[in-house]
Amino acid sequence: YYDYTKFECIYSTSDYSDMVYLVSLSFNKFVDIKCNSTEVKCVGFTEQGVKFADNFNKDKAFLQNLKASVDTFCRHNAEIIDSAVRDKAVKPKVIMKSVKQAEGRHPAMLQCSAYEFYPKKIKMYWLRDSKVITSDVTSTMEMANGNWYYQIHSHLEYTPKNGEKIQCVVEHASSTQPITKEWNPHISESDRNKFAIGASGLVLGIIIAIAGLIYYKKKSTGRILVPN
């Protein structure tokens, strides 16, 4: 069995006006009792929890502490944490790459990734010639690395067209301007090498073949014997 108590300070406003302090007691996974600083009372969710909650609700000192904790514990700590960590932002590293080439009737696929950003909230979308694309798009949710950084990925299936401009746009708190990556369908370095090697081999083969053929022809036509 596992038994745990969870203390929470939940808020969304910068002045903490909506802050609420919650205490939850859980035995064997499910919450048995939950105490709320705004309502200044505890609620039981299981048969045993209801009994415990009744006892807590009769304890005036406990309820006073519950109410006061929203200021002494929650507001105090939240102010420190917000200024030290939560109000910071780390810019994502945005990388676009091709993960599938167009072949016959199958469309190509681009991947846009944003790595190691904070906070978690981010917006990633695709533009084609400056218009937002929503179809043929598959995106992950923000994924946590477990050490305060997050990542997100989006895939776009598309059929390449000449002159078309494909962009991935990322909006994040770390930057006032959206981060834009434009797909440049130039040949990658290794592909360029492959073309170079192939072309070199082919040219070499052609040259040697032609040289051999010419040499043979000269030899054969240069000496024609006339019967005695």
Binding site: I197, G198, G201, L202, L204, I207, I208, L213, Y216
Partner: peptide
């Protein structure tokens, strides 16, 4: 790359053949 190298190799073999024949 594969096709080009194959054709190149074929060219080399053909050229060598003709040199030997001459």
């Amino acid at each position: 790359c594969g096709v080009a190298l194959s054709l190149g190799l074929l060219g080399i073999v053909t050229g060598t053949f003709f040199f030997i024949k001459a």
